[in-house]
């Protein structure tokens, strides 16, 4: 049900449109345990790439790669401060995940009520 570049969910009667590519990037970003941990670290405030990397055993380039994916998903924002790059968290794109979960919660709630009605009226 892809309409143009957008995706419209069939669940619920409110219009929920998302840019597919952006969704993909967000889902991909949070699918990895290291990236989720990075988001957890940034929840506590801004950090440099070096500070973030010091929490992990993997190499700094590997951490930078994870940060690039988070950045592409819009979950991490970087600011220059002198020679250092400071990373901070932007949780806004997660709103899409929340909308998606909410739609499913509504969908299942309506589905089981519909099942109940059918069962009890036809018994």
């Amino acid at each position: 049900m892809t309409i143009g570049n957008h995706l419209v969910t069939f669940i619920g009667n409110r219009m929920v449109t998302h840019k597919t590519r952006q969704n993909e990037a967000v889902f991909r970003a949070i699918s990895d345990p290291t990236r989720r941990e990075i988001l957890g670290i940034l929840r506590g405030g801004r950090h440099t790439v070096g500070e973030i990397a010091s929490n992990f055993r993997m190499s700094r380039p590997a951490i930078s790669k994870h940060l690039r994916l988070l950045h592409a998903a819009g979950l991490v924002v970087t600011h220059k401060q002198g020679t250092a790059s400071l990373c901070s968290l932007d949780a806004k794109p997660l709103r899409m995940v929340d909308d998606w979960l909410r739609d499913y919660a509504t969908f299942w709630s309506e589905s089981i009520q519909s099942l109940k009605k059918y069962m009890e009226e036809n018994s």
């Binding site: 699918s31 345990p33 989720r36 988001l39 957890g40 929840r43 997660l94 995940v97």
Partner: peptide, 18 residues
Amino acid sequence: VTEGLRARNDGWTIIVTL
């Protein structure tokens, strides 16, 4: 959320909290 989460990582709680 993602199939990657099937690996059952504590990291998921971070996403829920966020």
